[in-house]
């Protein structure tokens, strides 16, 4: 029941948004993420956007990840 997935906001109408993932569209409530706007990716949980995804942070995580193969913290 707790499957929160990243979905892209297509339209916003008041506190309701249309969000999309893999061509599936649904409605979601924005009252827990009032800053969300068209084009943002949000985590949708039980019909509500609970957080906006941060692209810069995502990139940083991937960069760190691509480095850890070389930095295992041992044997150096």
């Amino acid at each position: 029941m707790c499957l929160g997935v990243p979905m892209k906001i297509i339209t916003v109408d008041g506190t309701t948004a249309t969000v999309e993932m893999a061509n599936v569209r649904q409605e979601c409530d924005l009252s827990l993420s009032p800053g969300a706007k068209v084009g943002d990716y949000v985590i949708v949980h039980a019909g509500f956007a609970i957080e906006i995804l941060d692209e810069e942070d995502a990139r940083e995580t991937l960069e760190l990840l691509d480095q850890i193969g070389f930095d295992t913290g041992r044997g150096s």
């Binding site: 827990l32 993420s33 985590i43 609970i50 957080e51 995804l53 941060d54 692209e55 942070d57 995580t61």
Partner: peptide
């Protein structure tokens, strides 16, 4: 915090408030 693209140190204040 591996999931910083979604999780903030302080969480979602609006949700906590509601």
């Amino acid at each position: 915090n591996q999931y910083s693209r979604v999780v903030k140190e302080e969480g979602n204040p609006r949700a906590q408030e509601i």
